[in-house]
Simulated scan of single mutants.
Amino acid sequence: MKRFLLSCLLSSAIALPAVGALPEGHPAPDFQTQASLAGKAFSYSLQDALKKGPVVVYFYPSAYTGGCNIQAHTFAVNYDKFTAAGASIIGVSLDSIDRLNEFSADPEFCGGKVAVASDIDGNIAKTYDLTIRDAAPGKKDTRGVDINHGFAERTTFIVKPDGKIAATLTGLKPAENVEKSLEIVQQLAAAK
Rank of each mutant, 00 (worst) to 15 (best):
S62W: 03
P27Q: 07
P23K: 14
G53F: 08
D48F: 02
V19H: 13
Y44Q: 06
A21K: 07
Y44H: 08
F31L: 05
G67L: 09
K51S: 14
Y64Q: 01
P61R: 01
L22D: 04
A28N: 04
A38R: 14
L16H: 08
K51W: 04
D48E: 13
G39N: 00
P17Q: 05
D48L: 10
A21P: 01
Q71G: 00
P27G: 08
H26E: 13
Q32Y: 02
S36P: 09
A49L: 05
L16I: 14
A35V: 02
H26T: 15
Y58A: 14
A35F: 01
L22T: 10
A41L: 01
A13P: 08
A28F: 00
P27R: 03
A13T: 15
S43A: 15
A15C: 12
C68Y: 11
V55H: 03
Y44G: 00
D30C: 09
L37H: 05
C68I: 01
P23I: 12
D48K: 15
P29H: 08
T33G: 06
D48R: 13
G67H: 13
I70W: 10
L46S: 10
A38I: 05
I14N: 12
A35L: 09
A18G: 10
F42V: 02
P27A: 08
P29Y: 10
V57Y: 05
S45L: 06
V56S: 13
G25W: 03
A15I: 10
D48Y: 01
A35R: 04
Y60M: 08
P29C: 01
Q32G: 12
A18H: 09
T65E: 03
S45D: 00
F42L: 11
G53C: 03
K52L: 11
A28M: 05
L37Y: 05
D30R: 13
Y60L: 09
S43N: 13
A13S: 15
A41F: 05
P61F: 01
A18K: 07
G20N: 04
Y64S: 02
A35Q: 08
T33A: 15
L50E: 02
A15K: 02
G39I: 02
A63D: 11
L50T: 02
A49V: 02
P61D: 07
V55R: 06
A49H: 04
H73P: 11
Q71F: 00
L46M: 02
A18R: 11
L37C: 09
I70Y: 10
N69Q: 11
T33H: 06
K51Y: 10
Q71D: 05
A72Y: 02
K52N: 14
F31K: 03
A72P: 00
G53N: 00
V57E: 06
F42R: 07
Q47V: 07
K51T: 14
A18E: 14
S45I: 00
H73K: 15
P54K: 09
T65R: 01
T33M: 12
V57I: 15
G20L: 07
T65C: 04
G53H: 05
P23C: 11
T33N: 06
A28E: 01
P17S: 07
V57L: 13
G66H: 10
H26R: 14
G66S: 10
P29G: 01
Q32C: 06
N69I: 09
G66F: 15
P23H: 14
A21G: 04
Q47R: 15
P23M: 12
